[in-house]
Simulated scan of single mutants.
Amino acid sequence: MKTTGNTILVTGGGSGIGLALAQRWHDAGNTVIVTGRNAAKLEAAIAGRANMSAAQLDVTDADAIAAFAKDIVAKHPNLNVLVNNAGIMGTEDASAKRDLAEAEATVVTNILGPIRLTDALVDHLAAQADAAIVNVTSGLAFVPLPKAPTYSATKAAMHSYSVSLRAQLEGRVEVIELAPPAVRTDLTPGQSTREGYMPLGEFADEVMALFAKVPTPDEILVANVLPLRNAEAAGNFPQVLEMLKSL
């Protein structure tokens, strides 16, 4: 993936990792579009930034995704990079019967959302030069956080989906997986100040340095996420899982 001269669409770009990366890509000389459900956050994200625009999108709404894709391609015919970043995370007690509404919303947002948006844009992207799809997963795709079973499962699913998509689009569209560690964002209550989590600015800086590598790695993995990514290969999966059980 080239580092400048792209037109990049970032879902969930009004806050957290999406916002930090969108603004850094903009600073690097890319045209950037951010989407999300909160109009105020989107407007704050693009304030004072030429060649950066915002559009509301609820990735849980299949019809809205289809309409959005047609509109965004008409407005930005040079769109060549899709970043599927929007996601939600919650904790659950799956040890007894419960209301599954939150689990089902997590599946729709974290799996169906990026699959649907990718499907709506893949033909356009495949016709562009230097096209790429970036799927934001998680270190929890590789070792789950037991208290967040559905979230962890959705990220494992998107890791697998990214591998398959990369194989199918080989030679036409780069498919890159970005798997963050625990980062200080507002994804969950109190996370933005939680001790031991990676500061957002440091994470974004390291990510941008990895994207600048030639060729771009299939997986963008900052140093903090490597213990999770490599746990199974290193033979210490049970120990890492036990550590996560204590969180």
Rank of each mutant, 00 (worst) to 15 (best):
N6S: 13
T7P: 11
L9Q: 05
S15Y: 01
Q23M: 01
N30G: 01
N30T: 04
I33L: 14
K41G: 08
L42K: 00
L42T: 05
E43Q: 14
I46H: 01
A47F: 07
A55K: 14
A55Q: 13
Q56D: 09
L57T: 03
V59L: 11
A64T: 10
F68T: 04
H76P: 00
P77E: 04
V81Y: 10
V81R: 11
N84F: 11
N85I: 12
N85L: 04
G90N: 14
T91P: 02
R98P: 03
D99P: 03
L100Q: 14
E102T: 15
V107Q: 02
T109W: 01
L121G: 00
V122S: 08
Q128M: 05
A131I: 11
P146N: 01
A157H: 09
S164R: 12
P180C: 09
P181C: 14
V183F: 03
L187Y: 04
T188A: 13
P189G: 09
S192D: 11
M198L: 15
L200D: 06
D205Y: 08
E206L: 00
V207F: 10
A209I: 07
F211V: 04
A212R: 07
D218C: 04
A223V: 15
V225T: 15
P227N: 14
P227M: 14
A231T: 10
A233T: 09
N236I: 15
